[in-house]
Each structure stands twice: as C-alpha cells, then as structure tokens.
C-alpha cells in the first residue's frame, strides 16, 4: 500500500476536469431544464388560472343568458298563447259570422223559393180554378166567366151605390180595371147599369196585365168587384189551416207512441 504522488496529481486534475465536464454537460443543463420547466409550469398554471377565471366568467354569463332566454321563452310562450287564443277567437267569430250570414242567405233563399213556390202554386191554382170555373159555368149555365163577373159586379154595385157616391167626393169618373179588355157586350151592360145606379158618373175602362182574372170598379176611395186572387187567398188560408191541423195530429201521434 503506497501512494503514487504522480497519480495523485493526475487524479486531482482528472477530478477537477470531471467537475467542469459534469457542470457543463450535466448539472447546468439539468438544473436549467428543471428551472425552465418549473417556470413554464408556473406560467401555465397562471395561464390556466386566468383561463379558468375567464371560463367561470363565461359560464356565469352563459348561465345568465340561458336564464334570460328561458324567462323570455316563457314570456314569448304566453304571448304566443295569447295571440293564438285571440286568433282562434277571431276565426271563431268570423266563422260564426259567416255561418250566420250563410244561414241568413239560406233562409232568404228558402223564403224566396217558398215565395216562388207559393206564387207558382198561386198561379197554377188560379189557372186551374179559372179553368174549372170556366168549364163549370160553360157546362152548367152556358155562360162565360166574364159575364158572371160583370153580373156579380152589377149586383154589388146596386148594393153599395150609396156608399160609392159618398166615397166619390168631387170625382165623377169611375175606373173599371181588368187584366184584359172586356167584351163589348160586357162593357155595354156595365155602362148601362152604372148609368142607372150612379147617374152623373162616367166609366173609364182600363187594363193591367199584372192583375189576376177579375174586375175592379173604383170610385174615389171605394171599390167593388170580383177577383180570382181573393178566392185564391181564401183557398190558401184553408190549405194552411188543414196543413197545420195535420202537423198537430202527427206530433200528438208521436208523443202518444213514445
């Protein structure tokens, strides 16, 4: 066991060189790397804290926005519901109005059709009645309808002569109104009878195609004569009365059966 001082010196130099080498290639790089990483970690943590703070702020804003939107959504729903209800009410009112209008139109149409039907019935009935009357008079009495109308008018003229004179006032002209011109014989008879019953009065014959068959003698505010329409009106009243009785009987039958 001995010490080689040359080796000792060389080992001291080697050791000092090794210190320098490790300081250059080991300690400084490692320590600098650790410091850099710690610094970077610190910076990243600070940055992460900032990002987290920003994220929390954004989250709070987002939540507030969501709450606001939800509140607005509820209000919008209420508004939409109210608008929908108003729209529904308006549509219902419009529909009801349109239905009422259509119902009124249908009612008017029905009334018009009834009126037309009644008029047609009236006209048909008048024609049938007139035809039957003419035929009956021709077959049974060998007379025409116009002769019987004139005769009836003359009879009524004698009965109400005084009333006619009173109603005539200052007027001295009586108007005979028919649908078609009278025959000469009928005209002459009517003129002769008027002259005897109503002396001083003249007759003026006039026609109106819209009138029904018959004759009207007007003097002032009074009139006398015979028209088929008055008969038809009576016939219509009788028919309506019969129809009402039939409906009442049907209703009573249904109630008894129930």
């Amino acid at each position: 066991m001995s010490i080689d001082w040359i080796t000792v010196g060389a080992q001291i130099v080697n050791f000092l060189v090794l210190i320098w080498l490790l300081k250059r290639f080991l300690y400084r790089p490692i320590l600098d790397g650790i410091d850099a990483r710690e610094k970077e970690i610190s910076e990243r943590m600070a940055e992460a804290a900032k990002i987290r703070e920003a994220a929390e702020t954004a989250e709070a804003e987002h939540k507030a926005l969501i709450a606001k939107l939800r509140a607005g959504q509820a209000g919008a729903l209420d508004e939409a519901r109210a608008a929908a209800e108003a729209e529904r009410d308006a549509i219902l009112a419009e529909t009801r109005k349109r239905l009422a209008r259509e119902e009124a139109e249908r009612e008017a149409q029905r009334a018009e059709e009834a009126r037309r039907f009644t008029a047609e019935l009236h006209r048909s009935g008048a024609e049938a009645l007139l035809s039957l009357t003419r035929k009956a008079l021709s077959d049974l009495a060998d007379e025409t309808l116009e002769e019987r109308i004139v005769a009836h008018t003359v009879t009524r003229l004698r009965e109400v002569a005084d009333e006619l004179r009173d109603a005539a006032g200052d007027s001295r002209e009586a108007v005979v109104l028919t649908r078609a011109p009278l025959s000469p014989e009928a005209t002459e008879r009517l003129v002769n009878e008027a002259a005897s019953v109503l002396p001083g009065f003249t007759l003026r014959f006039d026609t109106d195609p819209s009138l029904g068959p018959g004759l009207n003698l007007r003097l002032g505010g009074a009139q006398v004569g015979w028209t088929l329409d008055s008969y038809l009106d009576g016939l219509e009243a009788v028919l309506e009365d019969r129809a009402g009785r039939a409906a009442t009987q049907v209703t009573q039958g249904s109630t008894d059966a129930a």
Partner: peptide, 21 residues
C-alpha cells in the same frame, strides 16, 4: 490503470450526460 480507468469513468459520465442532455 488508475488514471486510464478514471478517464474511462469520466468519459462514461460525460458521454451519458451529453447524450441525455
């Protein structure tokens, strides 16, 4: 051998350090 082996160890330590860092 002491000096040479010391050099070997120095080279080993330095080489590893250089390679890694």
């Amino acid at each position: 051998a002491t000096i040479v082996n010391t050099w070997v160890i120095m080279a080993l330590l330095t080489g590893v350090s250089v390679l890694i860092t």
